[in-house]
Simulated assay, not measured.
Amino acid sequence: MDDTALDWRKSSFSGNGGNGCVEFARLPDGGVAIRDTKDRTQPALRYTAAEWTAFLAGVRAGEFDLT
Rank of each mutant, 00 (worst) to 15 (best):
Y47R: 14
A33N: 06
L6A: 10
T48H: 13
T67E: 12
K10Q: 15
V22L: 10
W8N: 02
L45C: 10
S11T: 08
G31T: 03
D3L: 07
G62K: 01
R40E: 12
R40K: 13
A61T: 07
E51Y: 01
W52D: 06
I34R: 05
G62T: 05
N19I: 03
R60C: 05
R35E: 07
T67Y: 07
V22C: 00
F24G: 10
G62V: 04
S14K: 08
P43R: 05
L27T: 08
W8L: 07
R60L: 02
T67H: 11
V22W: 02
K10V: 15
S14Y: 02
T41C: 11
L27G: 08
T53Y: 06
K38R: 13
K10I: 15
F55C: 03
A44Y: 04
A33T: 08
L45P: 00
G31Q: 07
T48V: 14
G17R: 04
G31K: 09
L6F: 06
F24P: 02
R60T: 01
R60Y: 02
W8Q: 01
T53W: 03
Q42H: 12
F24I: 15
N19K: 03
E63W: 05
D7R: 11
S12M: 09
T48L: 14
A5K: 15
A25R: 00
K38S: 10
T37Q: 14
S14W: 00
S14D: 05
W52C: 06
L45F: 12
P43T: 03
S11L: 06
L6T: 03
D39L: 10
R60W: 00
K10R: 15
T4C: 11
G18K: 03
R35T: 06
N19W: 02
G15C: 02
Y47F: 15
A54Y: 07
D65I: 00
S12I: 09
T48A: 13
T37F: 12
S11V: 06
S12F: 04
G30W: 10
G17V: 02
A44K: 01
G18N: 04
R60K: 14
R35S: 08
M1F: 10
G18L: 03
L6R: 10
R9I: 09
G20K: 12
R46V: 15
W8R: 02
R9P: 06
G58D: 01
G15Y: 02
R35K: 09
S11H: 06
L45R: 11
Y47A: 14
D29Y: 10
A57L: 06
A57W: 00
A54S: 14
N19H: 09
T41Q: 15
L56D: 05
D65Q: 09
R26A: 13
D39H: 15
E23K: 06
R35P: 05
G15A: 02
K38N: 09
D39K: 11
R60I: 00
K10S: 15
A44I: 08
T37I: 11
T53R: 14
T48R: 13
V59M: 04
L6M: 08
F64K: 04
R46M: 10
A44P: 11
E63Q: 12
T48G: 15
E51P: 03
G62D: 03
